[in-house]
Design a binder for these strands. Structure first.
Lengths: 228, 228
DNA sequence: GGTAAAGTACAACGGACATTGCAAGTTATA
DNA sequence: TATAACTTGCAATGTCCGTTGTACTTTACC
């Protein structure tokens, strides 16, 4: 149902799609437009223009029309961002190689900055997510669940694992609930930046963002640092 | 205690038609519909039906049409919620009467619970706010600023004052930035509940919400409790 | 170069919806 | 009761936009 329905028959006949990979261009442009305008306001014509593609081609690739396109964008974008987030997580807080105690704050801060950086790197995605939040009531529960599962929940689970590892090594004290510590960490490092930047509309100067991130990390460490 | 806020003209029971306080009914219904469906999806006919009013009457009261109505709803709703929030703040954390140290956690927890409770009492408002967040790019900057100023910023300022007062009395240590402590407090007590309840779509059981709120307050006190 | 898939241009349909004008009905007030 | 103010139902207008059919062109690959 949710699949594009065109990946089975192309295996034998077609090595790759037509000219350039139009499908990718469409999804990418749709991510921008949906993120900027939201589902209702976004126009197929606008997406087509932004993708450098004719309107008809969109319907050829996505027979389900606007809805199917939106669902594809949700999946594509959230997987992309999830991978980027997991990459940063493993880079700065690999559960396999916990940091030296003296480097804990430094590493957490690096992770937090990278995390916040992704918010501007994937501005379109997070704009889209805000629209999803606003329209939870208009998105089928199954679609919503699938998205949460492969996106936010997967990432949250990995971060939680990292927190648990830090706890295991006595670097922090999660007070019995690493998942909760994770949510608190995310909230502390990103809430104020999100608010102050008008949800990405007018980004903060780098140094100001850094200052707020650092304050969040310090607050987290005061709340969850091991008693030592 | 979600009052309708229209009992100033309490005569006798008004007849179903004619000269009731239509304007209020319209704005109230519009708040529901805009909150549920968002600006684009919301239909004037739907609002009219929900308000028990003819479509034409809406245009009589709001000659600017949908846009003016939306702006009126923003103002009305945010002022209403602001007043409710300030009332709770003064009730549990009056800057004039700082709590006894032994009662600090109890009072903060009471405030936090009341605060979270407002999110369900004014579900429509917060749904509307999510739509505003998602559509920052489509709302005139002046309207957005006026809203922030009389709503969130005003409340934030008062909470910040309360935090500063707690700091002055040595009950907490804001580390030189009461505004930051305020944002962190709000983030800690509400982030997880918001996420887990799908942004109000499927509310959490009371005891679960209480548990998360309490965890947030405890984390806040670990981060900002005075060293004494 | 030939063929088929992929893409494009264009026109048209149909529905949803904001908005307005108007005539008639209802209410409040003097 | 008279009158002005308010409300309503309804029809109509215009616009925007998702979607589809069709004929034509481009591209990829043999």
């Amino acid at each position: 149902m949710t699949g594009t329905g065109s990946e089975d028959k192309t295996r034998t006949v077609q090595p790759r799609r037509g000219r350039a990979d139009k499908a990718t261009a469409i999804v990418q442009a749709a991510c921008q437009v949906f993120g900027r305008d939201g589902y209702s306001r976004a126009g197929i014509d606008t997406i087509a223009a932004e993708a450098g593609v004719s309107t008809r081609t969109i319907y050829n690739h996505f027979p389900g029309g606007k809805e199917e396109l939106f669902r594809s964008v949700m999946r594509w974008s959230s997987e992309r961002v999830r991978d980027a987030q997991l990459a940063q997580l493993r880079r700065y807080l690999d559960p396999e190689r916990p940091p030296h105690p003296a480097n804990l704050e430094r590493d957490l801060l690096a992770l937090a900055r990278a995390w916040v950086g992704l918010m501007t790197d994937f501005r379109d995605h997070f704009a889209l997510v805000r629209h999803i939040y606003a329209e939870v009531g208009h998105i089928p529960a199954e679609v919503l669940d699938a998205w949460q599962e492969t996106g936010p929940r997967a990432v949250g689970g990995e971060v939680t694992a990292a927190m648990a590892a830090l706890d295991d090594h006595g670097l922090i004290d999660v007070h019995g609930d690493p998942a909760q510590a994770t949510v608190h960490f995310m909230a502390l490092i990103s809430t104020e930046i999100t608010q102050r930047s008008y949800w990405g509309l007018s980004p903060l100067p780098q140094e100001e963002a850094d200052r707020l991130t650092a304050a969040g990390v310090r607050a987290f460490l005061r709340a969850y640092g091991s008693a030592a």
